[in-house]
Design a binder for these strands. Structure first.
Lengths: 190, 190
DNA sequence: CGCCGAGTTGAACTGAATCAAGAAACGTGG
DNA sequence: CCACGTTTCTTGATTCAGTTCAACTCGGCG
């Protein structure tokens, strides 16, 4: 999913608008395991993933990595707290699979918001979608058993479930790696 | 916190704009215990709470009420999924304390979005704030003990913690009423 | 071949749920 | 303003899902 198609699908930009908007982004390729944002940094960049896979995670009190979100192709990726509020990021952002991404700085994005009301709309739509997904995850985490949570994950990120280390998924789902391993086993036997 | 002041604080509307925008809202008072949205309905209304208190909740498999969110004065309130996607609501919305609210229909809100680019900005800002809060709650729920979650609640909704039934708070925090009661007891003794 | 990280398995432990029963507080009508 | 029923809150005993800790398997790779 490339950025131009993604934008067009959400808001009916004209060709000129689209060209100008795309000019504000920088396309680049990022190799697996690279970090785009570090905990404590103020993140000034928003990413759009054309292909590849990323995740955000943080280190808890005992220094364990806790995956907060996965970002697949066709999605915007950012350390939301840091990017929007310009505060030090609680999260790392890491590329899990070689990726092609478009980046834009907060400054340039704000320019776009000021120039194109349609961009505000886009921003609102993208944020609303994200909000819905986070609410879904919250409900899954809060009220479902470990097994049901794994099933939610399979539904939400079907492609991701088998291509990243078990531990990343387990921490995303709020359970230990051992528990997830047992769940997988019990699922495969039925 | 009234609506006019709230709007002005976020986006620099002119007086004329503000007047016109406010004309799209209907002010009304709602008594305690009234339901504004029922599960299964498509909610066409967004509410702004000038004073009073509301909550959204749903019924789980065993028919128990699960509080999803509290809405205090100076906040927008809606069954987010239903209002934004115009699908049947998963949630009820209930007034917990006599309230003065401003309502606006989805249709009128969309008119405002089309007329005033600044409204798109407002929409984006409000949604972003909500997103941040939900992410915070998610982190609290996912990785903290019952006791820490209660402390998160005291920080996020200091005023609310003692004015609504224990069970509403417990379900909001993803624990049983009994557990919350024990936590309160242990907190008060130290 | 031997190491190393990722995944699996087992056994003991624990935080919180469940179940059950009382105590307090609340409101409604007489 | 009191009495009664209902809802809300507290407390205790028991149970259980999931964690923790520790050992083991497996596959890849220098």
């Amino acid at each position: 999913m490339n950025l131009s198609d993604f934008l067009k699908a959400l808001v009916p930009f004209t060709t000129e608008e689209l060209d100008d908007i795309l000019r504000h982004f920088t396309k680049e390729t990022v190799a697996k395991n690279q970090l785009l944002v570090r905990q404590g940094e103020v993140s000034k960049t928003l990413y759009f993933i054309e292909s590849g896979l990323g995740r955000s995670y943080y280190l808890n009190q005992s220094g364990k990595e806790i995956t907060q979100w996965f970002f697949g192709s066709g999605k915007f990726m950012a350390s939301a707290d840091s990017f929007f509020q310009q505060c030090p990021s609680l999260y790392y952002i890491e590329i899990l699979e070689d990726a092609v991404i478009y980046s834009i700085s907060k400054g340039k994005l704000d320019e776009l918001f000021d120039t194109y009301p349609k961009m505000e709309k886009l921003g609102r739509l993208v944020t609303t979608e994200m909000l819905t997904k986070v609410v879904n995850k919250l409900n899954a985490i809060q009220f479902q058993t470990a097994k049901e949570r794994y099933e939610y994950m399979l539904a939400e990120f079907p492609d991701i479930a088998y291509q990243v280390p078990l531990g990343h998924i387990a921490s995303y789902l709020g359970m230990t790696q051992e528990t997830l391993s047992r769940i997988r086993k019990s699922n495969s036997s039925k």
